[in-house]
Design a protein around this nucleic acid. Structure first.
Length: 504
RNA sequence: GUCCCCUUCGUCUAGUGGCCCAGGACACUGGGUUUUCAUCCCAGCAACAGGGGUUCGACUCCCCUAGGGGACGCCA
C-alpha cells in the first residue's frame, strides 16, 4: 500500500501554526515511507473562504519548508485539490448516500433548530437535530423542492449503541451514538460541509493515514459512518495533541500570535520554527532537541508522539532560534538578515517614509527602528495623556484589533486603512488626534513616529496585532467581562454602518 | 450540562514493572571565562495530581476521585 497523507486547511484566515504543525507530521510520515503528501484546500465555507488566505497559506507552508507532492497549484492525479472545484463529485455521492438511506433531506428553518436546541440544552440534553424531517416521503420531499424551499441534507445517525473507532495513539475509543448529531452534509447553498467533503476527498484521494488535531476526535463517528455507508476502508487516524496557550487552553490568536507569518516577520528562521514544532509532542530517541526535518523524517514514529497538550513556549523557541542563527556562517547571517529586513521592497517602503524627515543620514535608523525590529518595551506611563484616559486607550486599541481583522485588501492603497480608522474615531466620539495617540505608542513605542498607517502597512497585520495586544496588556489587559462588553459594543458600532462597505 | 481525550520539575520532555529516593532541555538563581554585554562552561533550584487495587516490586498495569483540555454550528 502506498502511504498517502494530507493536510486540509480552510482558507479562511491567516496561515495558522497548527496547520504547519499538522502538515509537518503528515509530510514526514509520508516521505519516510516513500509516499505522497497532499495539500487540499477546504474552501467549503463560501462566506469566509478567501483567495488571499488560500495563497497566504501556500506561501507560508512553502516558507517553512513543508511543500507538497500534490495540491491545488501543482496538481496531481487525484485532483482537483480545492473543494470548490469538486462540487459535482459531492453532489453525485450525496445522491448515492440518500439513495442507500444514509442521508436525508431536511427543510427545517434556522429558527426551529435554534429553539429545539435551546430546549434540549435547558433540559440538560445534548443539543442536536431532533429527526423532524427524517420520515418525509419521497413525494413530500419532491414537492418541497419544487416549491423552492431551502434545504440541507443530513447524515442519518443510529440512535442506539456505541460507535467504536480506533486511534493509533489511544487505541479504541467508544462514543455513544446518542451523542452524535445528524450532521448537515450538504448546506443549503449546495456546498458540502467539512465533514462530508473531507471524508469523501480522503477516500477519493486515497489517503491512508490522517495526522490531525485532537479537536477532531469527537467528530470521528460521523466520518466513520460515512465510510461505512459507502463501504469504504477507513484511513488510519492519529490525533495529535493540541498546541496550547500558556494558560493551557487551545492555542488562539486572542492570547498569542498564531500566524506563521508573525514568526517569519519577527525573524525566526523557518528551520528553527519547524524544529521547535517537531518537539511539541514528539521527542527524538536520543533526546536531541535540535534536528533538521531530514533527521525528523528518518526518526519519526507515531509511538514517540505524546498525547498531552504542549504549551507553545516562546522563550524556548527563541533559544532554539538563537542556536540556529549562531550556527550560520557570517555570510549566511548577512544575507538572511538582509532579506528579512529589506526583502520584498521593504527598504523602499521604509526609506520613502524617512527620506523627507532626514537631515543627516544618522537620523535614518533611529526613526525606522520600530519598523526594522522590535519596538521599545512599553510602560503604562507612556500612555499618559491629558485628554485621553487609560481606559480610552484600551478601548481604542481593542477596537483597532477588531477593525484591522476586517480589512481584507490589506495590501492596497493605504487610504483603506486610514479611512476605516477615521470612521472608528468618529464612532467612538474621539478627536482623531487623540484617537491616534495610543496607536502611535502601541505600534512604534513612541507618541511621535513615522506616519501611522504606512507603518501599519509595512509591519503587516501579524506584527501589528501582536503589538496592539501587548500594549493592551501593559495597560492592565482586558478581563473576560470587559472583553464581552467591548465585543457587544463593537457589534453595535459595526451595525451602525460603515466598515463593511469601505473595508472589503 | 452531556460525551470524549489528557495528567512526570514553572514550560518542553525521557521513562513501555526492578537500571529512577526519576534523566535531559528552556526559564530562573549562583559561580567561572570575556574590556562591557551576549555566547560558552560549571553548579543549584525544581516533578511522578490524590486515593484504592494488581504485583515480591509500580512513574510505568487496572479502578475511582480531582484537575485540565476538546467537542456539542447550514465553522473548520
Amino acid at each position: 500500500m502506498t502511504i498517502r497523507t494530507r493536510v486540509a486547511p480552510s482558507p479562511t484566515g491567516l496561515p495558522h501554526l497548527g496547520t504547519a504543525y499538522v502538515a509537518l507530521f503528515n509530510r514526514a510520515f509520508a516521505h519516510q515511507h516513500q509516499g505522497k503528501f497532499v495539500l487540499r484546500m477546504e474552501d467549503t465555507d463560501v462566506e469566509r473562504s478567501d483567495p488571499t488566505s488560500d495563497q497566504a497559506i501556500q506561501d507560508a507552508l512553502r516558507w517553512i519548508g513543508l511543500d507538497w507532492d500534490e495540491g491545488p497549484d501543482v496538481g496531481g492525479p487525484l485532483g482537483p485539490y480545492r473543494c470548490s472545484e469538486r462540487l459535482s463529485i459531492y453532489h453525485d455521492l450525496i445522491a448515492e448516500l440518500v439513495a442507500i438511506g444514509g442521508a436525508f433531506y431536511c427543510f427545517c428553518t434556522k429558527e426551529r433548530l435554534d429553539s429545539v436546541r435551546a430546549d434540549q440544552r435547558q433540559q440538560g440534553h445534548v443539543p442536536k437535530y431532533d429527526g423532524h424531517c427524517i420520515g418525509l416521503s419521497t413525494q413530500e420531499i419532491q414537492s418541497h423542492i419544487e416549491e423552492g424551499k431551502p434545504h440541507v441534507i443530513r447524515l442519518k445517525v443510529p440512535t442506539e449503541g456505541n460507535c467504536v473507532f480506533h486511534d493509533t495513539l489511544r487505541g479504541p475509543i467508544e462514543i455513544p451514538w446518542g451523542q452524535v448529531d445528524m450532521q448537515v452534509l450538504i448546506k443549503s447553498d449546495r456546498f458540502p460541509t467539512y465533514h462530508f467533503a473531507a471524508s469523501v476527498d480522503d477516500h477519493l484521494m486515497e489517503i491512508s493515514h490522517i495526522f490531525r488535531g485532537e479537536e477532531w476526535l469527537s467528530s470521528c463517528p460521523k466520518h466513520q459512518l460515512i465510510y461505512t455507508y459507502f463501504g469504504w476502508e477507513q484511513p488510519e487516524l492519529i490525533h495529535l495533541p493540541l498546541l496550547r496557550n500558556p494558560d493551557h487552553s487551545k492555542i488562539s490568536k486572542r492570547k498569542q500570535s498564531t500566524s506563521i507569518n508573525y514568526f517569519r516577520r519577527c525573524g525566526y528562521l523557518p528551520e528553527a520554527l519547524l524544529n521547535y514544532l517537531a518537539t511539541m509532542g514528539f521527542s527524538m530517541p536520543d533526546e536531541r532537541e535540535m534536528f533538521s526535518f531530514q533527521e525528523f523524517r528518518e526518526a519519526f514514529t507515531p509511538s514517540r508522539v505524546s498525547t498531552s497538550g504542549p504549551v507553545f513556549d516562546l522563550a524556548k523557541l527563541s533559544w532554539l532560534n538563537g542556536q540556529y542563527i549562531r550556527s550560520l556562517s557570517h555570510s549566511e547571517f548577512k544575507e538572511k538578515l538582509g532579506d528579512w529586513a529589506f526583502g520584498d521592497g521593504r527598504a523602499d517602503s521604509i526609506l520613502r517614509l524617512v527620506h523627507d524627515r532626514t537631515e543627516r543620514f544618522d537620523d535614518v535608523f533611529s526613526q525606522a527602528d520600530y519598523l526594522l525590529g522590535e519596538r521599545a518595551i512599553l510602560k503604562a506611563e507612556l500612555f499618559n495623556h491629558k485628554k485621553i484616559t487609560s481606559d480610552d486607550c484600551v478601548r481604542v486599541l481593542y477596537f483597532s484589533q477588531l477593525l484591522l481583522e476586517q480589512i481584507k485588501n490589506w495590501d492596497s492603497e493605504s487610504e483603506v486603512i486610514s479611512e476605516a480608522f477615521k470612521q472608528l474615531a468618529e464612532l467612538l466620539e474621539l478627536k482623531f488626534r487623540e484617537f491616534l495617540f495610543p496607536l502611535f505608542v502601541a505600534i512604534s513605542g513612541r507618541s511621535v513616529s513615522l506616519p501611522l498607517f504606512d507603518s501599519i502597512q509595512i509591519l503587516g497585520l501579524d506584527v501589528v496585532n501582536a503589538r496592539l495586544r501587548s500594549a493592551i496588556n501593559v495597560l492592565g489587559g482586558v478581563s473576560k467581562k470587559t472583553a464581552k462588553r467591548l465585543d457587544s459594543e463593537w457589534h453595535q458600532l459595526a451595525s451602525q454602518s460603515i466598515f463593511t462597505t469601505k473595508t472589503n
